[in-house]
Design a protein around this nucleic acid. Structure first.
Lengths: 226, 226
DNA sequence: TATTATAAGTGTATATATTACAATTCATGT
DNA sequence: ACATGAATTGTAATATATACACTTATAATA
């Protein structure tokens, strides 16, 4: 079937966002193979016959980070004829959100990987910069209406950390009181007894995102919105 | 380059939305080829070496509708191994918005095409229903913050028509006064002297979307939002 | 142990946006 | 002239978003 039609190389590329408690960052690798050897690039890989495209993205993400069960969403397919000068490749871009503290530095050395602040990105090969810009916009839109920001934080986090994260994502500052009021009013966070004392002498209370509460709220017509 | 990697068939499928001044509808074709001959399907086609994927989508859309310069946006790629039982095909879904009155009925006969109301869709082949459901959600999100609803209307339209369109897209009714107030306050519509007398004895004034005004507003920090 | 430094935590008033709601106008057909 | 039916118009009530400054807790230091 379909034999008369041409076939194409299909790849996946992963835009990996991380938050190091300070800045929103992007994980890139230095290519150690041709073409464009030595230049910065997104982590990618060719699709195999044995896997769905989502599985290919999970595999590529795992190869670089050693992490599984990560938030991973397809961005879109890129298929301009000349996007890769070494051959026609249809690339399907995915973006992932990880707590960058969990990132395995061992693997990082193998791949010559490095985190870059979003406003000091290196030159990237092919159309990878286009992908990244689109992923940032998608991330902003998603974070406005879906509780996915938590994917970038450790399981337990403080409200100042959460606020800083959203400020990084949206590129603007929020008022402390209004932010806390809004997020707490949603009733989807559990306040713990523990405090995190990294950031101050007083220490800040730790919170957890409560997925069950969130799902219950959703069923009652609630809409998450920052 | 890349020779050791497998290649795949790549196709595009078009989710074509139209508005017939009454209902939001989807254009489907009855397949006259195997596999799944005789069943309803989205219009699709295989990618050619000579074209970008966006061009492939434009070609497929043109084949079925005879229309060019149409709003067309990539939805996403679908690549489950078993999605097409006749062979491994990576399909890239696009959705298009057309004024269905412009649709060429001649071509429609060639392809055995037909418009379906969104809540009475036929069974569709493969994963086409999944694509359509996703396209509807994407359309709703886009229409909330981008002035793309106009793509579904003729160049000149009345406010009751526009309201009905948005009611169809979002699946709920709006208050007439509030809707008009909001949309007119944006200052992106030009009121014409002409009236459309199809819908009533009194007739309703015709309006046009003013892209230049919209762009100017956007540069001043304005945000379209329904 | 008193003092200081630093970030965490808290409440209210104002402005803005959204929602709810009903009467009048216009053109045609009877 | 009258009846019909959709188009058009404004205001009050409510909800949401924004602006803004002081107190508290703790650890380091004097």
């Amino acid at each position: 079937m379909y034999r008369k039609n041409k076939k194409f190389h299909v790849a996946v590329d992963c835009i990996i966002f991380g938050f190091d408690r300070q800045e929103l960052k992007l994980l890139c690798i230095k290519r150690d193979f041709e073409p464009e050897k030595g230049r910065w690039s997104l982590m990618g890989g060719f699709l195999k016959e044995s896997e769905d495209i989502d599985q290919a993205a999970e595999r590529v993400l795992y190869q670089l980070t050693g992490l599984e069960h990560i938030y991973l969403e397809q961005l879109q397919a890129y298929g301009k004829r000349e996007r890769d000068p070494a051959g026609r490749v249809i690339s399907i871009a995915y973006y992932a959100l990880i707590d960058s503290v969990r990132f395995d530095k061992q693997i990082s050395r193998t791949y010559d990987a490095s985190w870059f602040s979003l406003d000091h990105l290196p030159d990237l090969v092919f159309d990878h910069r286009v992908m990244v810009d689109k992923a940032i916009r998608r991330l902003q839109r998603r974070c406005r209406t879906q509780p996915i920001g938590f994917e970038l934080l450790p399981e337990k986090f403080t409200l100042p950390q959460l606020q800083l994260l959203y400020e990084e994502i949206f590129g603007r500052a929020f008022d402390k009181r209004n932010f806390r009021k809004k997020i707490l009013a949603m009733g989807i966070l559990n306040k713990l007894e523990e405090k995190d004392k990294e950031g101050s002498r007083k220490g800040a209370y730790l919170y957890q995102f409560d997925k069950d509460k969130y799902d219950a709220m959703m069923n009652n017509g609630f809409n998450f919105e920052i």
